[in-house]
Write a protein that binds this DNA or RNA. Structure first.
Lengths: 201, 201
DNA sequence: ACCTGCCCGTGACACCTGTCATCGGGTGCT
DNA sequence: AGCACCCGATGACAGGTGTCACGGGCAGGT
């Protein structure tokens, strides 16, 4: 019997996944959480062996949660699930110590198998995504560029961003200009969107 | 026995919801589709009584799919499900003839009840969302403003947008300026983001 | 010690953008 | 007919934005 933990911020999806996986005779959902920062405690308390982690979560995202699991409970394996196949996410998830990466587009029947393989110590990664992640390579953004792009995601003017991060307006423009070049965009908001699509944020 | 159709573009979520609802003795999932434009045909072929429609779908979104159902198969009731509570969506879903509106944050246990109520001819709408939709009111945007905002979503410069819709650059600027005023934003990309959050696009 | 890379800042410049005033044409309502 | 509203367009203007050159400081490798 494989003991499972589910982490997803949408209660309906979480409950539905639990119903799906509980149908399998050899799987048992022993914990459910809606926030990333509750994963480690819940995994410890419930004695989970495999954690299914959504990336988009409040508190702590799924990738950082996987890293925390790796650090605090090395015996627990994690399987990262996300809506879209953003190549950068695959790389970061693997680097964070996740044993698997599944997109929500995959057929429901395959999820249980993915869990079993992860539990058996195998790696489970969507082959298309793995190829893409190798082509795209890692994020070329520097720390500041990444930070400023996240602030540019909502379309704020440069002055607002500069005030939020306590930087000169010109410095913000310089960093964002570099980011625009690296993403191949022509506007900071376009650059922010592209970077997010590739999982660089 | 209530006959159900599920429409969601994410196969994993779709399958999981099917597993969840099939657990109920009086519910039966008779069809599953991943695109909005397949809903009507599938509902007709399967004899579904209630359709669970996600809003974000390729081909046709869930609201337009509800409208198509209302037109083609008036006896079939629809329950719209979406990730976030965007007030504008509630109003549009109701106007499109949907009998219910549920967010994915609601507990999984309540979904089956929502389906039963919709099947019984009742309206099921998240009370918080209903209140918000009344406060916010309908979209103040004109047709062009809405169209141009959707093109501004990805952060494209004005020149690109103007070329895409075959309009003068100045005209685009004027419409977007009006949209910026109506959303309370200071930038077109911020306005686009706000409009999308409120379900105005 | 040297080089490289990231960080922060300034200044300047061309260009883009948001705003306003103004015009004409069309539609729908009273 | 008058009015209100949306659409498309133009021109002008202040201010925002992207780019470049340049400077200095700091950490990490060789």
């Amino acid at each position: 019997m494989i003991r499972l933990l589910l982490a997803d911020d949408q209660a309906l999806v979480r409950g539905a996944l639990a119903a799906l996986l509980d149908l399998e005779a050899d799987l048992e959902v022993v914990a459910q959480v809606g926030r990333g920062d509750e994963v480690v405690d819940a995994a410890r308390a419930s004695g989970a062996e495999v954690c299914l982690l959504d990336i988009e979560m409040p508190g702590l995202n799924g990738i950082d949660a996987a890293a925390a699991l790796r650090r605090e409970l090395p015996g627990v394996r994690s399987l990262v699930v996300t809506t879209f196949g953003r190549p950068g996410y695959v790389r970061r998830a693997v680097e964070a110590g996740a044993s698997g990466f599944v997109v929500k587009d995959t057929p429901a029947r395959q999820l249980a198998d993915a869990v079993r393989r992860v539990h058996a110590g195998l790696r489970v990664i969507d082959p298309d995504l793995a190829a893409e992640s190798l082509i795209d390579g890692p994020s070329p953004l520097t720390g500041r560029e990444r930070e400023l792009l996240t602030h540019a995601l909502d379309g704020s003017p440069v002055a607002t961003i500069a005030a939020r991060v306590h930087l000169s307006e010109g410095t913000v423009r310089n960093h964002l200009s570099a980011a625009i070049g690296k993403t191949g965009a022509t506007t900071r908001s376009e650059a922010a969107r592209i970077a997010q699509e590739r999982g660089w944020l």
